[in-house]
Nucleic acid binder design. Sequence first.
DNA 1: ACGCTTGTTGAGAACGGTTGTCAAAGATCG
DNA 2: CGATCTTTGACAACCGTTCTCAACAAGCGT
Lengths: 132, 132
Amino acid sequence: MAARMTRQRTAVVEALDELADFRSAQQLHENLRARGESVGLATVYRALQALADASEVDVLRAEDGESLYRRCARREHHHHLVCRSCGRTVEIDGPTVEAWASKVAAAQGFDDIEHTVELWGTCADCRAAASK
Amino acid sequence: MAARMTRQRTAVVEALDELADFRSAQQLHENLRARGESVGLATVYRALQALADASEVDVLRAEDGESLYRRCARREHHHHLVCRSCGRTVEIDGPTVEAWASKVAAAQGFDDIEHTVELWGTCADCRAAASK
DNA sequence: ACGCTTGTTGAGAACGGTTGTCAAAGATCG
DNA sequence: CGATCTTTGACAACCGTTCTCAACAAGCGT
Ligand SMILES: [Zn+2]
Ligand SMILES: [Zn+2]
Ligand SMILES: [Zn+2]
Ligand SMILES: [Zn+2]
């Protein structure tokens, strides 16, 4: 029942910290393998899932449906501005949006409200690289 | 090059209109087959894709990653409040959110900004049904 | 240190939604 | 009607993710 601390789990957390931005499970797996820390892909998925359940990482879906993971600085609820091409991420909080969302939903008689608010764009670096 | 009007395409649009709320490609396919209008699944996907490209339908991703489609009343940009269990949908616009989103993103030097703002909940009917 | 117990791992199979393939069908037009 | 050229549909392929299950190893009591 208790979560055991294994080499693999530690490695996944390290990879997350090193990469800093939103990454897919496969990218993390690739990164681990590149640095010699061999970890099974299924294990990477399991570790990420566990971390997400424990709210240790944020998960969001890329436009193509792939799940992206990130260890955010703040633990409180927040949103993200993510670069579509490199994953660069800026944490954002929108008190205005939160209030708006719950008010609107309640007014329609909906319950158990959750909101998805994410911003996607191209960061300055990627824009420069693209127009080279 | 010109889009030909075929029995299948017409059928897909009819199914969309009849179901009114956000539905998956497979649900629509099932619905068509149920009413006797047999259409291949691949064709349903292609029709929906074409409609989405033409902005005739809105597409959004369910929490499990499945794509959901809907013919919305308004053609202008807007968002949705969707019931997780039955798909019931309420169209919403949030001028506040729009302004907030573009301002925040621009302030970080991001370009080509897009925002995802969707609300998920349980509608009154589904809540009642669940607590029966 | 040494087993025991029990959660964890990993290679590969399975899964589910979606897209690609390609020969047959049919919409459009002269 | 006939030629042309898009569309269709059964099926295979794809791809991210989850499942399976025997081998493995943390943690713990001794
Ligand atoms: Zn975050
Ligand atoms: Zn970038
Ligand atoms: Zn809509
Ligand atoms: Zn409902």
